[in-house]
């Protein structure tokens, strides 16, 4: 066996509590491609961009704390949640641009014996697989290519916007999700609403709008007669799968579109079973011709 690639794992709120199964799935799938996760201890909720609505400095400080822990572990900070990725990356960017702010945040952290040096690398699922693991290795591990499946790929917004928090790929024309999907053997279908936002963060303040936005994205994909949608963002997954029935009912649409969280599809292609991927938990039944 080759060496493992290791990350400090920042779970965010999607991988604990009622959603703890995702953490297990992620660990199982990553084991297949030689990735090991080490939980970052004493991590704090990134605030989801909402804490900024009370205090920007608080948001920066809690996320500097998260990064400081990863720095101490000597590992890149990996978060599977796109919003966490966005908020933490944004904190990093703002402190990089403003050294006085960086120093102030470190004063805040000093009381807890922490220092955010600014060296922490932040990454998410797409880049872990496409860049760090590499498409070559992924290809080796695919034992069950999913050829024939027509797939709508959906990045969601928070790994892409704004462009200046981006890492290695073009923000206007990212390809990592499609690159990965191609290795899994599926056929990628372009659709008109693929760049739209699902509105997840409006779930509680404006649920109706959230449902409309989700329905718009789903309908765009549905029009192209796809077998399923795959997203790399766990929050988008919740909108697209968990809220699908409600969103479509509210907007008077009548169809079902199975949605997979990217690691689930990787697991299936690497020979894991639908049960191992806990597909029975999905809101929209997934019955793939595998």
């Amino acid at each position: 066996m080759s060496d493992k690639i290791r990350y400090g794992f920042y779970s965010g709120c999607c991988f604990q509590g009622a959603d703890a199964r995702f953490y297990e799935i992620l660990q199982d799938v990553f084991a297949k491609i030689d990735v090991e996760l080490e939980l970052i201890q004493d991590a704090v909720c990134c605030g989801s961009g909402v804490i900024e609505e009370r205090s920007e400095l608080t948001s920066l400080a809690v996320n500097a704390k998260n990064m400081a822990h990863a720095e101490k572990m000597g590992l890149p900070l990996y978060t599977p949640c796109s919003t966490c990725f966005n908020v933490i990356s944004n904190a990093q960017k703002r402190m990089r641009e403003n050294p006085a702010l960086h120093a102030q945040v470190n004063e805040i952290l000093a009381e807890q014996g922490l220092e955010y040096k600014g060296t922490c690398k932040i990454t998410h699922t797409l880049w872990v697989i496409a860049q760090d693991v590499g498409l070559e290795k992924l290809k080796e591990r695919v034992t069950n290519p999913l050829s024939g499946l027509r797939v709508a790929s959906y990045y969601g917004c928070h790994t892409r916007n704004p462009a200046d928090i981006q890492g290695f790929e073009s923000a206007d024309n990212p390809t990592s999700l499609e690159d990965i999907l191609r290795v899994l053997g599926v056929q990628i279908v372009e659709y008109e609403t693929q760049e739209d936002c699902c509105g997840y963060h409006l779930a509680w303040p404006n649920n109706q709008l959230n449902m409309q936005m989700t329905a718009n994205v789903l309908e765009g994909a549905h029009k192209k007669d796809v077998d399923l949608m795959v997203t790399s963002c766990p929050l988008c997954f919740k909108s697209m799968d968990g809220s699908q029935a409600k969103a479509l009912a509210q907007t008077g649409k009548n169809f079902q579109l199975p949605v997979l969280f990217l690691p689930e599809l990787v697991g299936l292609a690497c020979g894991m079973s639908p049960d191992e991927m806990k597909l029975q938990f999905h809101g929209v039944p997934v019955s793939l011709r595998l």
Binding site: N161, A163, A171, H201, L202, N206, L209
Partner: peptide, 10 residues
Amino acid sequence: SCAQCRKCIN
């Protein structure tokens, strides 16, 4: 009603 998707920033 803004979902903070941040495309506008981009």
